[in-house]
Simulated assay, not measured.
Amino acid sequence: MKSSEAAILVVDDEREITGLITLYLQREGFTVHTSDNGEDALRIAETLIPDLILLDVSLGRTDGIEVCRTLRQGVCANVPILFLSCKSEDRDIVRGLSEGGDDYITKPFSPSQLVARVQAHIRRRRTRERVNEEQIVNINFPGLDIDFRSMEVRLEGELISLSAKEFELLCVLARQPNRVFPLEELYQRVWHSDSMGDTRTLMVHISNLRKKMEIDPSRPRWVQTVRGFGYRFCPDNNCEERSSIPN
């Protein structure tokens, strides 16, 4: 997996630390989003569903432990969460891990070691996802049925005709509903190569997929745009398109 395919959310109210972490992660090709408070972090995480979250324990009004508990009850239940903290006593580490954290990094830390741990957690998550995807033979949502073996898609019971690439694109998105996929990652997963910065082919296929699936392609219900970032598959009728995700 290339680092450029991974989105990291860094939550810390110390700007110097956030800046340092962002610098090192971006050098490795990660897409980095930041927040300095728990409320904003929850909003970004629930929209973006990042590949990993670096979460400071001490955040003021809503601390990191509380943020972690909330994330574990929603769409980020399986996203790796690495706590950052000045507290290094055993009881603090045990508390962080028992509340849903996957790792605990004490400050001050080595930026290169932090990046290595981030990469290790993402590799493990990607491996689990790949194994789970290979075991899925069909997906059923209200009004939509996808059969991976026969490559058939039925919308409200009616068979719709998709090209091979349109079907692959829908499968990648539908296997991880609500997750926002960057354009480059989608291109790599479906075309198995780098887009070299030209994602027009992907956008044309998204447009064609919407024409076949959506009642009103200009107001998509299934395949939605998160402007400035990418696309997501939304099985919930209450899903709304987001205009942007702040960095």
Rank of each mutant, 00 (worst) to 15 (best):
E240L: 09
V180T: 13
L209G: 04
I81D: 08
I93V: 15
L84K: 08
D56M: 03
D216W: 02
C239P: 03
E99D: 04
E46R: 14
E133Q: 11
I65H: 10
A164Q: 12
E241S: 10
F229S: 00
R125S: 15
R219N: 14
E240M: 07
F233T: 03
D40L: 07
E129R: 15
N237T: 14
L209A: 00
I44Q: 05
T199C: 13
M196V: 13
V94F: 03
I136V: 15
L202H: 10
A6P: 00
Y187P: 02
H121D: 04
P246I: 03
D147W: 00
D103Y: 12
R124Q: 14
C234G: 05
R200S: 15
G228L: 00
E185C: 05
D40G: 06
G60P: 03
V11Q: 05
V32A: 00
S244T: 14
G74T: 11
I139N: 01
C234I: 03
G197R: 01
C86M: 15
N178S: 05
I122P: 00
A77D: 11
D103I: 07
D147K: 00
R72Y: 07
G100P: 07
Q113K: 13
K2E: 13
T201Y: 09
L71K: 06
V57T: 05
S244R: 13
P50C: 06
R126M: 02
R123V: 08
R128E: 05
E185I: 05
E129P: 02
E46H: 12
E39Y: 10
I206D: 13
Q135H: 10
F148S: 08
I122W: 00
R227T: 01
V118T: 12
I53V: 13
V180L: 14
F229E: 00
V180G: 03
A41K: 01
V153I: 12
P182Y: 01
T225R: 06
V10C: 12
R69Y: 00
T18S: 14
R219T: 14
Y231V: 14
T127C: 07
E214H: 03
R232H: 11
N237L: 11
G100S: 11
D103R: 14
D56K: 04
S58V: 11
V190C: 13
T31R: 12
D40R: 13
I206C: 07
L162P: 01
L25D: 04
P50V: 09
C86L: 08
E89L: 06
Q26G: 10
L9R: 06
V190N: 05
D147T: 01
F148A: 09
L155G: 00
I17G: 06
I8D: 03
R72I: 09
S112R: 11
S163M: 05
S88E: 14
E28T: 03
Q224N: 14
H121M: 09
C68P: 01
R95F: 12
